[in-house]
Design a protein around this nucleic acid. Structure first.
Length: 743
DNA sequence: GACCTGCTGCGGATTG
């Protein structure tokens, strides 16, 4: 990656901009251009490659990219869009359209917001006379390619720039593979591919981001980095003692708030009322329960409620109402939310950010922190950490106080500027099949060679070899559902099954969607809850931070009609697997256990938890050993992240040891130390063949949308490649554990 | 043991 070498002065950069852009800058009342903007102007107007712009939220990344971009394309004459802006969220497209339209108007550039909820007028005009900028989601891009391939080519074969916002979010997961493939296909239409500009606040691995951005030439990506000097953070970690462990697990399962709940709610109420804040919780159910209690608390205190819920299952209406109230900033507003308010939707900045529960990801914590701190004042972050009461039947997991230790480790890594790299997607096969169907549709048929040339090679599918593609295509051709057919000339066409998949509306997204109840209060849509919730007339529910009674159930159209009421519990939202912990976080947790400093940002209870944690760590002898016996079971501590631990647990199961990985360790059952030592000794000597075989014992590698249509051996092969690192580490982990047992 | 994201084209009726 090329680091920005020379930087001209703000005056020189300003002089390079289009006069109308300069006038717009004066209108904003800006006295000077930020260094970030100067760098971006130099790189875009002076250079010719791709750019990665990283800077904290609200540092002006959008302007840094667009001032020079619109300057570059202002006077060009062409048929088709000059700039494609890709965003992960419709709401972000609406925000950006609002921000950019005065600038574009001055230059006579058309601006077309292009997503499912955007008006059709602008799109229709763009089909007739395409020019300027389109602001689009990956799914709408897919829809354009599949449904209007001729128009898509006409609109996007002469692009000068592709701007990708919130790059860290768009490059990860199935969507990352999807968008990368779409961009590759767009590039194939033109002789001079558009320059790509990625924007992000949190990039854990710059080298990998550069590879994603320009797979054929990652070293030509210029890095433009904003001010990375640390912003002042006022941090507090607060400990809360919960009910007995057995009880706490039970109440969690039933969904009843835990014993610490009222005390945490009290503290939030007292510290946050009167100002604007964000409170992040780990689950939607927890958001509901906290927001509901805060509202009840306000009613009891005879004060107007200023606490609201925000999560992905709430309707657009409810969510934008809350976002508007935050943005207008005229009334104190505290929003209890999940990840939904992490990305760059414009909500202004808030006084303080709180999080209930220990962080699992540093990137996420950093994004959340970025929401706090008005100009000139420090960002306030409060972490609420719960640990259970210890009694005679408590096991090592409770005694080691992992939540407190994880919170301290997270803060240390935050200070060390660590951020997790974007996770590798497990949807490679699904994405490949999806894109094959899409290419066949776009081209009304394609030969295997065309498909291979178009999709394979540097990019999202570079791990796919010719034989993988052949296996996949053969399976699709021979499938009883007739996904693909071979035409007389040897080209591949959609079969009956393929047609059915592509013609469905949900084809455009690479992720799954399940059926849900729609919850309506009168005519107002409140949101959706999973069909799995038992509901009947008279059921009480807590939703959108308020209490409701179900008045009517329409099972045909899946609608719940509700009315305001009192009481009721939050619904059960479908549970997925917990977010993986990174290797670095476990390593840091071990360091926290082994050191003896008590950070001053811990309150008395949290300090107490940390002391208990270290005492337990020492009593179990974990400074010297990686294997302990507790409550009749043997527990192994590789001090690695979730990925490595899950693979290692699978390997143990292959050796007939019942093993289960959790956040802190791997727990075994019904096995003696001798049996485990023998298993570890065998695993220690594993060669490549054994390792490739070991993961056959894992049955859950068919998770993604179209995995059921993929041959199992291919899924297994791809799973192996994706987990190569964790798999290669297996013998070394076994050796370390065995050494512990010997001493 | 979690979270989040997205969605066409067409014909016909209605409205300004």
């Amino acid at each position: 990656m090329i680091l920005q070498a020379s930087v001209s002065s703000a005056e020189t950069a300003y002089a390079r901009l289009n006069p109308e852009v300069q006038a717009w800058i004066r209108d904003q009342g800006w006295k000077t251009l930020h260094p970030l903007q100067v760098q971006a102007i130099d790189a875009i107007l002076g250079g010719c490659g791709d750019l990665l712009i990283t800077a904290p939220t609200a540092a002006g990344k959008t302007e840094a990219a667009f001032l020079p971009v619109v300057t570059a394309v202002a006077d060009q004459q062409r048929t088709g869009f000059a700039v494609l802006y890709v965003s992960p969220l419709k709401a972000l497209i609406n925000d950006q359209a609002r921000r950019l339209s005065p600038l574009c108007e001055r230059l006579g550039l058309t601006l077309v917001p292009w997503h499912g909820d955007a008006g059709r007028g602008a799109k229709t005009r763009a089909f007739a006379d395409p020019s300027g900028m389109a602001l689009i989601t990956p799914e709408s891009l897919e829809a354009l390619l599949v449904r209007r391939p001729e128009d898509a080519k006409r609109l996007m074969s002469r692009l000068s720039f592709i701007v990708i916002d919130e790059l860290h979010a768009l490059m990860s997961g199935p969507r990352g593979l999807h968008l990368a493939s779409l961009l590759k296909r767009i590039d194939a239409w033109s002789t001079a591919p558009a320059r790509r500009i990625g924007l992000s606040a949190t990039i854990g691995d710059l080298a990998r981001a550069a590879v994603w951005l320009r797979p054929t030439a990652p070293s030509s990506v210029t890095l433009v980095q904003g001010d990375t000097s640390a912003t002042e953070v006022m941090l507090k970690v607060m400990g809360y003692l919960d009910a007995a462990p057995a009880e706490s697990r039970e109440t969690k399962a039933v969904g009843r708030p835990m014993a610490s709940h009222p005390r945490i709610v009290d503290h939030l109420f007292q510290t946050l009322r009167g100002s604007s804040n964000l409170v992040f919780a780990q689950t939607r159910r927890e958001v509901e329960s906290i927001a509901g209690s805060l509202r009840t608390r306000s009613v009891r205190a005879y004060v107007p409620n200023e606490f609201f819920a925000h999560h992905g299952s709430l309707s657009k209406e409810i969510r934008s109402e809350v976002e508007d109230r935050l943005r207008q900033n005229s009334l104190p507003t505290t929003v209890v939310c999940t990840q939904t308010l992490e990305l760059g939707i414009d909500i202004g900045s808030v006084s303080a950010v709180a999080q209930v529960g220990a962080p699992r990801s540093i990137s996420s914590l950093r994004q959340r922190l970025g929401r706090a701190g008005r100009r000139g004042s420090p960002a306030i972050l409060r972490l609420y950490i719960r640990e259970p009461v210890i009694d005679h039947c408590s096991d090592f997991r409770d005694r080691l106080r992992p939540n407190t230790v994880r919170a301290v480790a997270s803060v240390r890594l935050l200070q060390a500027r660590f951020a997790e790299p974007a996770p590798v997607s497990d949807a490679l096969a699904t994405a490949l099949l999806h894109q094959i169907l899409s290419v066949i549709t776009e081209r009304s048929g394609a030969t295997p060679r065309t498909i291979f040339n178009l999709l394979a090679g540097p990019g999202p599918f570079e791990d796919i070899g010719r034989e993988d593609l052949v296996d996949l295509l053969n399976a699709a051709i021979q499938s009883p559902g007739k996904l693909i057919e071979v035409a007389a000339d040897g080209s591949l066409m959609l079969g009956e099954g393929g047609e059915a998949i592509v013609s469905r509306r949900d084809f455009f997204a690479m992720f799954q969607s399940d059926l849900e109840w729609r919850v309506l209060s009168g005519q107002v849509p409140l949101g959706t809850i999973p069909l799995s919730n038992p509901v009947a007339k008279g059921t009480l529910i807590l939703f959108a931070g308020r209490h409701w009674i179900v008045e009517a159930v329409d099972t045909r159209s899946r609608i719940l009609q509700v009315a305001p009421h009192q009481g009721g519990a939050a619904p059960q939202f479908d549970a997925g697997a917990a977010e993986d912990l990174h290797d670095r976080l476990l390593e840091e947790m071990r360091a926290v256990y082994s050191s003896d400093d008590i950070p001053e940002y811990l309150d008395t209870q949290a300090q107490h938890f940390l002391s208990e944690a270290r005492r337990a760590f020492s009593l179990y002898g974990l400074a010297e050993t990686r294997v302990i016996v507790s409550n009749g079971g043997v527990h192994l501590f590789p001090w690695r992240g979730s990925g490595a631990c899950h693979v290692f647990a699978a390997t143990l199961r292959k050796e007939q040891v019942k093993a289960q990985a959790h956040d802190l360790a791997i727990s075994t059952a019904d096995a003696s130390l001798d049996q485990i030592a023998a298993a570890l000794d065998r695993i220690r000597c594993y060669g490549t063949t054994d390792l490739e075989d070991s993961c056959l014992w894992s049955d859950n590698f068919a998770n993604a949308k179209y995995d059921r249509l993929i041959p199992r051996p291919l899924l297994h092969r791809l799973w192996m490649r994706r987990n190569r690192q964790a798999i290669t580490a297996v013998p070394a982990i076994a050796a370390d554990l065995l050494e512990s047992l010997a001493t």
